[in-house]
Simulated scan of single mutants.
Amino acid sequence: MQVEPHRRVVLAPDKFKGTVPAARLVEAMESAVADTSPWVTAAPLPLADGGDGSVASAVLAGWSSVVVRATDALGAPVHAPVARLDRRAIVEVAAICGLGARRPTPADARKAGTFGVGEAVAALLDDGADDITLALGGSATTDAGTGMLRALGLDLRDGTGRALPPGGAALDRCARVDTSALHPGLARTRLTLACDVDTPMVGADGSAEMFARQKGADDRTIAQLSAALSHCAPLLEDAFCVRGARARPGAGAAGGLAWAGLLLGGRIRSGAEVFLDLLGARDQIRGADLVITGEGRLDEQSLRGKAPVAVAEFAAALGVRTVAIVGSDRLGPQERERAPFTDVVSLDRIDPGCARDPELTRRLVYQATRDLLQTHLRPAAPLRNGAAQ
Results as ranks from 00 to 15, higher is better:
Met1Glu: 15
Asp14Cys: 10
Lys15Arg: 13
Phe16Ser: 09
Lys17Leu: 07
Val26Lys: 00
Ser31Leu: 02
Asp35Ser: 14
Val40Trp: 00
Val40Asp: 00
Thr41Tyr: 01
Ala43Glu: 13
Ser54His: 04
Ser57Pro: 03
Ala58Trp: 02
Val59Asp: 14
Ser65Trp: 12
Val66Trp: 07
Val66Ser: 11
Ala70Glu: 07
Gly75Glu: 09
Ala76Phe: 15
Leu85Ala: 14
Asp86Arg: 15
Ala89Ile: 02
Ala95Asn: 11
Arg103Lys: 12
Arg103Gly: 10
Pro104Leu: 14
Ala109Trp: 12
Lys111Met: 15
Gly116Asp: 10
Val117Gly: 05
Gly118Trp: 02
Asp130Cys: 03
Ile132Leu: 02
Ala135Gln: 03
Asp143Leu: 11
Thr146Ser: 12
Leu154Asn: 01
Gly161Asp: 11
Ala163Ser: 15
Ala163Arg: 11
Asp172Trp: 03
Cys174Lys: 10
Val177Trp: 05
Asp178Phe: 02
Leu182Gly: 04
His183Val: 10
Ala187Tyr: 09
Arg190Leu: 02
Leu193Pro: 01
Pro200Thr: 04
Pro200Gly: 12
Met201Glu: 04
Ala204Thr: 05
Ala204Pro: 06
Ser207Met: 13
Glu209Val: 13
Phe211Ala: 13
Arg213Cys: 06
Arg220Gly: 12
Gln224Pro: 02
Ala227Lys: 13
Pro234Gly: 11
Ala253Met: 14
Gly256Leu: 01
Leu257Ser: 05
Ala258Asn: 06
Ala260His: 12
Leu264Phe: 00
Gly266Ser: 13
Phe275Lys: 00
Phe275Thr: 01
Asp277Lys: 03
Asp277Ile: 00
Arg282Asn: 01
Ala288Asp: 03
Ala288Tyr: 04
Leu290Pro: 01
Ile292Ser: 03
Arg297Asp: 01
Asp299Ala: 13
Glu300Cys: 10
Gly305Glu: 07
Ala307Asn: 08
Ala312Cys: 15
Glu313His: 12
Gly319Val: 13
Ile325Ala: 10
Ile325Gln: 07
Val326Gln: 05
Gly327Gln: 09
Glu337Tyr: 08
Ala339Leu: 09
Pro352Ser: 13
Leu360His: 08
Leu360Tyr: 06
Tyr366Gln: 00
Asp371Asn: 04
Leu373Val: 07
His376Tyr: 02
Leu377Lys: 07
Ala381Cys: 12
Gln389Cys: 09
